[in-house]
Simulated scan of single mutants.
Amino acid sequence: MLRTPTGGAGHGTAAAGDRPMSIGAVLGHLRDEFPEVTISKIRFLESEGLVEPSRTPSGYRKFTARDVERLALVLRMQRDHYLPLKVIREQLDALERGERVQLPAQGPQRELFDGSWDPDAERPSSGRIGRAALLAAAEVSEEELAEWESYGLLTPDGDGAYEPEAVTVARMVAELGRFGLEPRHLRAMKASADRDAGLVEQVVAPLRRHRNPQTRAHAEATTKELVTLSVRLHAALVQTALGVRLH
């Protein structure tokens, strides 16, 4: 069971005697227990509303000791219980109301991301899928799939099976085709995705090699979080380039 700390954690209100800390100092406090944490991670959690540091007149973040405790709790919920951010936010809100919170047993669970894009929404339950299953699930023809493969948009393994995400890729390629975008037009998107994957791999590779087994286990959750951020950034950059708002 978890009990809520007294006071308004996460709202940037320092208790008596607290000395506000910069984001760099917060990073130093957290690194001992969470060696994988970064300033970008802290900023991401802030952007998701999981911590709300105060700001100086010049815009610098100032964290209280209670803010740091809240961040540590969020990171433990991710690392030890693999909770999605939406559930973590609900748990923290319950703690703020003085309620007792029961966390699930430690172990990996499927993580869903906040926002309109859900990477698990149209994904088969588990495992790789065969060609016939992909054609049926994506509702595309053999000729279409063969063309997409020729442009590298989809690639089977040595046994002719595909990653579960291939269903989503196939459906999106088909939808874009309705607007006149042909597979040859989408090669730039595939190249960009490959570059993004390389950047993500640079970040998570040290986590997978870490001596701490919990840190190694956290690599998958970190990968998913980075993928979500990359998708959001890409969407924002496209919107900015077009000068449009989608919401």
Rank of each mutant, 00 (worst) to 15 (best):
R3L: 13
T4K: 01
G7Y: 07
G8C: 09
A9D: 12
A9R: 13
H11C: 12
G12W: 01
T13E: 13
T13I: 11
D18F: 00
R19N: 14
S22P: 04
I23D: 05
V26D: 10
L27S: 14
L30Y: 13
R31A: 12
R31E: 00
F34E: 04
V37I: 15
I39S: 06
I39Y: 06
S40D: 14
S40N: 14
K41P: 04
K41F: 09
I42P: 01
I42Q: 08
E48F: 00
G49K: 03
L50V: 07
V51E: 11
E52G: 15
R66M: 06
D67G: 03
R70C: 10
R70F: 01
L73K: 04
L73V: 06
Y82A: 15
Y82K: 09
L83C: 06
V87S: 05
E90K: 07
L92W: 12
D93S: 14
A94K: 12
E96F: 03
E96G: 05
L103Y: 00
A105E: 15
Q106K: 11
G107M: 03
G107V: 07
R110Y: 03
E111M: 14
G115K: 04
W117P: 06
D120F: 14
E122P: 01
E122H: 12
E122L: 15
S126T: 15
G127M: 04
G130K: 02
A133G: 03
L134H: 01
L135K: 09
A138C: 10
E139H: 11
E139D: 12
E144H: 09
L145I: 09
W148M: 12
G152S: 09
G152Q: 12
P156G: 02
A166L: 02
V167M: 12
V167Q: 14
V169A: 08
V173T: 01
A174F: 02
A174P: 00
A174R: 15
L176K: 09
G177H: 03
F179T: 08
F179G: 09
L181T: 03
E182T: 09
A193G: 07
R195W: 05
R195A: 11
R195L: 09
A197Q: 02
V200M: 08
E201T: 07
Q202D: 14
V203P: 01
V203R: 07
V204T: 06
A205T: 13
R208F: 01
R211L: 03
P213E: 04
T215M: 11
E220G: 02
E220M: 05
T228P: 00
L229A: 06
A236K: 05
V238D: 00
T240S: 15
A241H: 04
L242G: 06
L242S: 09
L242N: 07
L242W: 04
V244H: 00
